[in-house]
Every structure is written in structure tokens, then in C-alpha cells.
């Protein structure tokens, strides 16, 4: 019964949001069609929709999207791996923890894209550099959250674990990781968002390589050929992917875990 009501409430909200977005699109169309603004600056929404449809039909967008997602996957995967190693090192010794915290304070505010020139110098152009930028963008939020997550597990729960005879990795797996999960999840959220932004930015700044480019390169190329509806179409796809991952993946994982467990900090 409660579930049903929740479902209806959620859908009403979605409906309202959809209505709002549709209105915005309508206003956009009107503004563009009014003719005072050159179509080069603001193409009508319908043109963008057509571009989106054509580029999707031709397989162009899906190909680029696949490439982008694969790159983010590699970058994020490596980031998770290194965050785990760094955090493990930090947890093993106080001094390492201090180093990591200092390093975090220095490097965390640096946007991933800012390291691109150096990355190109070291790794050259191509997907390796983009993966490195994604890695850099994602690794710090992961380390920060993993670190705070592990530290925020109540001492009592750790002691219960020890009381039950858990030691070392068993204690980590049984108590620390689940206990830190809310932080781990929000770290993943931030890492994903930053990785996605870094990917698009990196591809646009150094233009990736033609056949191997992702959505950033798609937009970049359309910009240079002044296909403004295509630029907007690319942006829409980027937004959509962001939304889908955020809503379909993270929100549902959160609902199944952290919210179900009542481990939200609300």
C-alpha cells in the first residue's frame, strides 16, 4: 500500500519534470523560430532533434557513446583499484595516512583536465591519455570517501567483529566494507560524475583521434564544421547518459542498500 503510493508520487514527480522539460524545449523552439537570433547561434530544438535522430540512426552516436563508456570504465576501474591500494596503505600506518591526506588536500581540488598537458607529454595522445585523465579525476574522491568511510564505521561494530573472531581481511570484508558502503557509494557517484566530465573535456581539448573518439570528439568535430544542431545533440546525449547512470544505476543501488539499511546521513 505504502509502496503503491510511493510509486504514484514518484511518477507524478517524473511527469511534472517531463512537463517542465517539454516546456523548456518549446520555449527554445519558439525563441529560435522567432528569427531574431541567427540559427547559427541557436538552432531550433526541432533541428537538434532531427540531428539527434539522424546521428543515432547512422550508428555514429552509439559508436561514440560505446567508446566513451569503455574509456570511463577503464579509467574508473583503475581508479577504484588504486584507491583501494592507497587506502589500504593509509590504514596500515599512521604516517602513510598523513601523506595520503596531504596529497589529497593538494590534488583533490585539481580538475582532471588540468593535468592533460602533462599526461600528453608522458603518455602521448590517444585513449591512454584520456583514461589517465579520467583516472586522475576519479581517484581522489574515491580515496577521500573510502578513507572517511572506513574511519566512520562505529568502533563498536569493529569490536563486535573482533569479538566474533574476525581479523585482518575477514574483518575488512565482513564489517569495514559494508560499514563504509554509504561513503563508498557516494564516492563512486562523485567519481563517476567527475570521470564523465573529464572524459568529455579531455576529448574536446585535445581532440582525441578521429576513429577512436568518443562523444567529446563528436561534439568537437561538429563544432569545427559548424554543425551546431549536432553539437547540441551531442550535449543532450552526454546529459542523458549522466542522468541514466545517476538515476538508474546509483539511485537504485542506493535504494536497495543504503536507504534500505537506514544508513543515510539524513
Amino acid at each position: 500500500m505504502i509502496r503503491l503510493r510511493r510509486l504514484v508520487t514518484a511518477n507524478v514527480r517524473t511527469l511534472r519534470q517531463a512537463l517542465f522539460v517539454t516546456t523548456l524545449a518549446g520555449l527554445w523552439e519558439l525563441a529560435a523560430r522567432a528569427g531574431r537570433l541567427p540559427a547559427l547561434l541557436l538552432p531550433p530544438f526541432s533541428d537538434v532533434a532531427v540531428a539527434l535522430a539522424t546521428e543515432t540512426a547512422s550508428g555514429e552516436i552509439l559508436g561514440r557513446l560505446g567508446f566513451s563508456l569503455a574509456l570511463v570504465g577503464v579509467g574508473l576501474g583503475l581508479a577504484v583499484l588504486s584507491a583501494v591500494l592507497v587506502t589500504a596503505a593509509a590504514m596500515s600506518a599512521r604516517i602513510v595516512s598523513e601523506w595520503v591526506q596531504t596529497l589529497m588536500a593538494i590534488l583533490h581540488p585539481l580538475p582532471g583536465i588540468a593535468v592533460l598537458p602533462i599526461v600528453i607529454l608522458w603518455l602521448g595522445t590517444g585513449y591512454r591519455s584520456i583514461a589517465a585523465v579520467i583516472w586522475f579525476a576519479a581517484v581522489w574522491p574515491l580515496v577521500v570517501n573510502l578513507h572517511t568511510g572506513l574511519r566512520s564505521v562505529p568502533a563498536t561494530q569493529i569490536e563486535v567483529g573482533r569479538n566474533l573472531g574476525l581479523r585482518g581481511l575477514h574483518l575488512v570484508a565482513e564489517v569495514l566494507i559494508p560499514g563504509a558502503f554509504p561513503h563508498i557509494l557516494s564516492g563512486m557517484r562523485v567519481a563517476w560524475a567527475r570521470a564523465w566530465q573529464a572524459l568529455v573535456a579531455a576529448e574536446m581539448v585535445f581532440g582525441a583521434s578521429g576513429g577512436e573518439g568518443g562523444l567529446g570528439w563528436f561534439i568537437y568535430k561538429r563544432r569545427f564544421f559548424m554543425e551546431i544542431p549536432g553539437v547540441f545533440a551531442g550535449m543532450i546525449v552526454i546529459v542523458l547518459v549522466g542522468l541514466i547512470v545517476e538515476r538508474a544505476l546509483f539511485d537504485s543501488v542506493e535504494a536497495r542498500t543504503v536507504r534500505r539499511w537506514g544508513m543515510t546521513q539524513e
Partner: peptide, 24 residues
């Protein structure tokens, strides 16, 4: 034929990459 080969880079970066044989 070369659409898949091209990399967009500013001249100075590309020159450095070419000379150091990094990527291009």
C-alpha cells in the same frame, strides 16, 4: 580515407610529439 587517423592538436604540441615520437 584518413578520417580515423587524424588527431587535433595545436602546432607546438604536435611538433613536440612528432619530434619525440610520442603518439603521432
Amino acid at each position: 580515407a584518413f578520417e580515423k587517423h587524424i588527431v587535433a592538436m595545436p602546432h607546438p604540441d604536435a611538433a613536440a610529439a612528432l619530434i619525440s615520437k610520442k603518439g603521432i
